[in-house]
Amino acid sequence: MEVEYDNIGIAATYRMTATYFKISADVLAKDFISNKIRISGNRKAIPYYYMISHALELLLKCALLKRNFPKSKLKNSTLRHNLIGLLDELKNFGIPITEDTYNTIQIISDQHKKHRLRYDFLFDDGLLTFTPEPNSLNSTYDELLLTGAISTFGK
């Protein structure tokens, strides 16, 4: 028997899954740092960036679902894996987003949507893979984590 979950149940699952991805990314980052290996610009660190990128997608979807955004729209091809599209939908609810977070999401959105962090980053196809400093992504993660709290900004 298949169980139908409501938006709040799905949002909670997305938030927890995002947390697991972030914890795993942090473990990987700590290993790089303890071995004095640079993370930003390092192809070996792509799994770190994939985990953070996926965590951000889950947090955006969580925040939207908490605001009763139709879960069916999240599977729409224009929003599916589209970080900037999801962020713009969240902004339509009047949720303030810092310029730093918006810029970070805007830069990583295309590579996330096209699954470059999963499949294509090792191919020399002339496209750059954006690998910002972890502190930038951590700030973005922290900000988006707060947007999943329904009481945030009274919305």
Rank of each mutant, 00 (worst) to 15 (best):
L28F: 08
A29C: 14
A29K: 09
D31I: 11
I33Y: 03
I33N: 07
N35V: 01
K36C: 04
R38I: 01
G41Q: 04
G41Y: 00
G41E: 01
Y48P: 01
Y48L: 10
Y49A: 00
M51W: 01
M51N: 12
I52P: 00
L56P: 01
E57T: 04
E57M: 05
L58D: 02
L60V: 14
L60I: 11
K61R: 15
C62I: 03
A63S: 15
A63M: 04
L64K: 03
L64S: 03
L65P: 03
L65H: 04
K71D: 09
S72Y: 11
S72F: 09
S77I: 14
H81M: 10
H81C: 08
N82D: 15
L83Y: 00
L86S: 00
D88V: 15
L90M: 06
N92M: 10
N92P: 03
I95N: 06
P96Q: 12
T98I: 09
E99M: 12
E99R: 15
T101C: 09
T101V: 09
Y102V: 07
Y102H: 12
I108M: 11
D110S: 14
Q111A: 08
H112N: 10
K113D: 01
K114Q: 09
H115G: 03
R116T: 02
R118Y: 05
F121I: 10
F121N: 07
L122D: 11
F123W: 13
D124W: 09
D124E: 15
G126P: 05
T129S: 06
E133R: 04
E133F: 03
E133L: 10
N138K: 04
